[in-house]
Simulated assay, not measured.
Amino acid sequence: MGQGARSRRAQADDGELGAAVARAQQGDEAAFAVAYRIVQPGLLGYLRGLVGEDAEDVASDAWLEIARDLDRFQGDGAGFRGWTATIARHRALDHLRRRRVRPRQAALDPDVLDLPAPHSTHDQALESLSTEQALRLVRTLPQDQAEAVLLRVVVGLDGPAAARVLGKRPGAVRTAAHRGLKRLARRLGAEDAGGGVTDEPPRALGESK
């Protein structure tokens, strides 16, 4: 699914999400379950890109913290999406530190950025990917680009919200997402042509070679 389509779907859910969070803060457990249902798929996809097969365990830790600190949250549905992504990212980084593995960047030819994409738009490239294929390709990106793409496309955050999660300037996140999507389009074209660019097994962003 493309970045634009994913963002529109997230925005459509944000009204329901904000209402559910407000009710959950008043003690409505069913409303908390609604908020979980809306947020969890994107959050889990983001964590799969960060920690791989440990994503569900890290997500469980994140949701324990989200539930514990829910009364402290102030904001709307979009704000809640960003708040939960920040918590999940902190738990993922803690997990990687416990494994004593430093996040690494994939060694890609910088000239790839200057090659023409095989599709007319990044959205068209991503819309042709299955979820697992998309995550597998995202894991081959440098970490800053991978996180920017995951937050924008998978979690559904806008540029400023993604920047707050990453502690970076919105312009830097937009640039990283753009370059990441361009690389994905190029790699998708290489796969379609049988180039074998992504033959290495899927890995988490924090995994070492």
Results as ranks from 00 to 15, higher is better:
D109K: 06
G18M: 11
P103A: 15
D13C: 12
D14W: 04
T198E: 06
G171S: 12
W63Y: 14
L17I: 12
E147R: 15
V34Q: 02
R136F: 06
A162G: 14
E200Y: 01
H95S: 10
R152Q: 14
R102H: 14
P202H: 00
S130I: 03
S128E: 13
K168I: 01
E200M: 02
A88I: 10
D192F: 10
A172S: 15
L47W: 06
R72Y: 06
A146M: 07
R9G: 02
A67N: 12
E127R: 08
T140D: 02
L137A: 08
A62V: 08
T84H: 00
R6K: 10
T121R: 13
Q11F: 07
Q3R: 14
L47T: 11
L135P: 00
A30W: 05
K168F: 03
A67I: 10
E147G: 05
A59N: 08
A146D: 01
I87D: 01
A35Y: 02
A106D: 08
A33S: 09
P160M: 15
E191Q: 04
G4V: 13
V58T: 08
A176Y: 08
R179Q: 15
R136Q: 14
F73Q: 12
D192I: 12
S7R: 15
T86E: 13
E127K: 09
H122M: 13
V51C: 12
G77L: 14
A161N: 10
G82M: 15
R6L: 02
L93K: 09
A59M: 10
E56G: 10
P41A: 11
L44K: 05
G180Y: 03
A125M: 05
R100L: 07
D111T: 11
E56I: 13
V155E: 14
V34P: 00
D111H: 11
G15V: 13
T84D: 05
Q133F: 09
P201W: 05
A162R: 07
S128W: 06
G180Q: 07
A85R: 00
E127H: 05
A107D: 06
L205N: 10
A33Y: 04
A55K: 06
V21L: 13
G2W: 02
L64G: 11
K182D: 11
H178G: 08
A125W: 04
L188W: 14
D69K: 10
L50I: 12
G42K: 05
R98C: 06
A134L: 14
A204S: 09
G167V: 07
R23T: 09
R136T: 11
R81I: 03
R203I: 00
S130H: 05
S60Y: 07
G77I: 15
R164F: 13
A10C: 03
G45C: 05
V39M: 01
L93W: 07
E29P: 01
T140W: 01
L184S: 05
G171I: 07
H95Q: 09
L135T: 00
G159T: 15
E191P: 00
H119S: 04
L44N: 03
R97P: 05
T86K: 04
L44C: 01
G52V: 10
L135E: 03
A106Q: 13
L184W: 07
P116Y: 02
L126A: 06
E207W: 11
A161R: 15
S208A: 13
D94M: 07
R8G: 02
F32K: 04
V154H: 12
R48I: 09
A148K: 11
